[in-house]
């Protein structure tokens, strides 16, 4: 290696190191701030009360978030319950079954859908879905059902696009091996292609659930934002994120209200952390059997 090459090699490495450190630092400071103010919420309201209570009142200065946690989980799980099977089926269809021509039209369309800002879905939900639910199923229309449908529309393209990519990236040699042994196409998809694409599929679900649980604005527009537990699909409720988005601007600086909102953020962070570790675990297990 010439002097010059050595120098640019070093320079490159140190630049990468610097950028990596900066982004890590930013990440850590974000986490630090959420923790700092979030912990205050736990301290001020009591750990168990904050998580398991169900009152949120600025005047009485009491805050607790169980209905929000329930709302967030119900809406996210509800959306995943539908969009994962639908999304995977679409992905399989596109990657394995659809003729090239169909794929060439549908795939770019889905990629575009992935990029649509979620507020747009929220707006559509508010204008079309909410009145529809109100007129046909009762209640105020603003409901977890509306939120779930909005989320499904929002995350379905993400799941399809990601899952399709991961299915298509399964080496064709695996597929050939299976078919040459006399497996049918469906058997091959089920027994070889899907298991091989598992890690990518899990990623797609994780990405989608991340989007779902983290979505604030679109959900805020359609879920009704009551501070109550939903008892049926047409009941309104409130999620951790929509709570933050609804109140952060009105909360007095440095007050317990603001801390409580940070507490919501902290809980969200925790849920996302669990999700990610779980997906990491699934992927690791997936690799071992591969």
């Amino acid at each position: 290696m010439s002097k010059h090459e050595q120098f640019s090699e070093k320079l490159g490495k140190s630049l990468i190191f610097i950028f990596a450190s900066i982004s890590l630092l930013i990440l850590l400071s974000i986490v630090f701030f959420i923790f700092r103010d979030g912990f205050l919420a736990f301290k001020e309201n009591g750990f168990f009360h904050f998580i398991f209570g169900h009152d949120w009142n600025v005047q009485d200065n009491t805050f607790s978030v169980l209905p929000l946690i329930v709302g967030s989980l119900v809406v996210t799980i509800g959306a995943l319950l539908f969009s994962v099977p639908i999304g995977f089926s679409c992905a399989v269809f596109l990657a394995e079954i659809a003729p090239e021509k169909v794929r060439n039209i549908v795939k770019p369309a889905i990629d575009i859908l992935v990029g649509i800002p979620s507020v747009v879905f929220g707006l559509l939900g508010m204008i079309l879905l909410v009145p529809y639910i109100r007129d046909h199923y009762g209640g105020p229309g603003l409901s977890i059902l509306a939120a779930i449908i909005v989320l499904i529309l929002m995350i379905l393209p993400t799941i399809i696009a990601q899952a399709e990519d991961s299915i298509r990236s399964v080496p064709s040699s695996f597929k050939n091996a299976s078919l040459a042994m006399g497996a049918t196409h469906l058997q091959t998809i089920w027994n070889v292609i899907l298991p091989c694409a598992k890690s990518g599929l899990v990623s797609s679900v994780m990405l989608a659930s991340g989007r779902a649980i983290g979505e604030a604005m679109a959900i805020y527009m359609v879920i009704g934002n009551t501070f109550t537990f939903p008892k049926s699909l047409i009941d309104p409720s409130r999620t951790l994120t929509s709570n933050i988005v609804g109140q952060i601007e009105e909360a007095a600086v440095g007050g317990t209200h603001l801390h409580a909102l940070f507490g919501c953020g902290l809980i969200l962070l925790f849920i996302v952390f669990i999700l990610n570790s779980y997906s990491f675990f699934i992927k690791r297990r997936g690799c071992r059997s591969c």
Partner: peptide, 11 residues
Amino acid sequence: LKMSPACLAKK
């Protein structure tokens, strides 16, 4: 009176 938590909130 206290405002009911079942009120639908808007920004």
